[in-house]
Design a protein around this nucleic acid. Sequence first.
DNA 1: ACATCATAATAGACCGGTCGTCTATAATGT
DNA 2: ACATTATAGACGACCGGTCTATTATGATGT
Lengths: 205, 205
Amino acid sequence: MQQGTSKRDEIIRVGAALIHARGYNATGLQEILDRASVPKGSFYFYFRSKEEFGVEIIDHFASIVGGIFSRHLRNGSIAPLRRLEELFRFFEGYYKKQEFAGGCPIGNLSLEMADASERLRTKLAAVIREIIGTITACLQEGVGDGSLRPDLDAAGTAEFIFHAFEGALLHMKVAKSVEPLRAFRKHVFRYIGRREGEPQQQGGS
Amino acid sequence: MQQGTSKRDEIIRVGAALIHARGYNATGLQEILDRASVPKGSFYFYFRSKEEFGVEIIDHFASIVGGIFSRHLRNGSIAPLRRLEELFRFFEGYYKKQEFAGGCPIGNLSLEMADASERLRTKLAAVIREIIGTITACLQEGVGDGSLRPDLDAAGTAEFIFHAFEGALLHMKVAKSVEPLRAFRKHVFRYIGRREGEPQQQGGS
DNA sequence: ACATCATAATAGACCGGTCGTCTATAATGT
DNA sequence: ACATTATAGACGACCGGTCTATTATGATGT
């Protein structure tokens, strides 16, 4: 009985992987179903339409990506700025393993689907809002413990960091290189006040 | 009628607009050809394949986007930092007019096509490299005239600015709001050293 | 002027894949 | 026995990119 659900989950799992690799429009239902060994007709028993399925795929990605952000940024056992560092170091390792393919599934779907489906657009916007919220909370902790300037605009800075990260992932995907992620890390931490592996130098206040 | 070429250009013009609005995969040749009033069969007289056509579409976008960057950032009549400000102000106005639809055509195609076509990927990477180069040159001018720290890593900073900008456009597209672009401008100029919120100029437009 | 010929351009057939629907069947639980 | 849950896959209508055959066009040689 629980296996009934697992079949549905399998469609989502396989579909998410395929959509992450090829994109939403370039991925056909047939291919997903073939790989999941699920007959065509069953799809419309589990999902109302491809768009409906897309919403669930976004939920799936949101829980994975959001989970990574949360696990790192809410880890109370290390200092807030350090958490940020570890987070982006983690992503760098992950994407190196993937040979820079795929990129951010949320970013990919955002650019591909925002103008095509209002349903998916609002869903994606909510996911992004939450991720930025997680970063914001971490920065606020940094303000609280004195490692960041007391007048720091945590929400705006978190948003800016998210922008730079997404842009770096885009650049990484197209350049097939770690370099964009390196530049991102270096400048993000310089911006918020931490030097990375470099001689500290007066940044001229 | 030596506009044999103009017919070809018309296909590119119409195709670029459609691909900018809907994406590469979601745009069919048929729709492009219908709107350009060119029969289906003629397409393969002008272009070898859809991918070949894609390369030309990227060239088209590159000349438009690259042109905007160049026109602003190589304008010797105003100070380098001011050029950057005007550039992003210009984009903000443009996207407001478009109601935040479309986003950056280069960014869109990068995420959609980088893993699907090596041909398009390298082309897109080159376009991005050139844009970052234009920003780099502008920053170097700023270093030269003393408005930026002498030890500024111009190339890395330019790259970082590009990342943040692309990320902001992504966020703008999905949130359908100017706010991401506002946050981007505020933090970018805070990072490179210009204080915002202080009346420093009249909106010269 | 006329026939010839290469090229420019068009027309539409072609096959395969798309999403989505439909009916038929099998497993399950009460 | 029977409704419910799930599987099965054919089918339709349509649209995708590509190809081959055909027709305009225009230059050339006599």
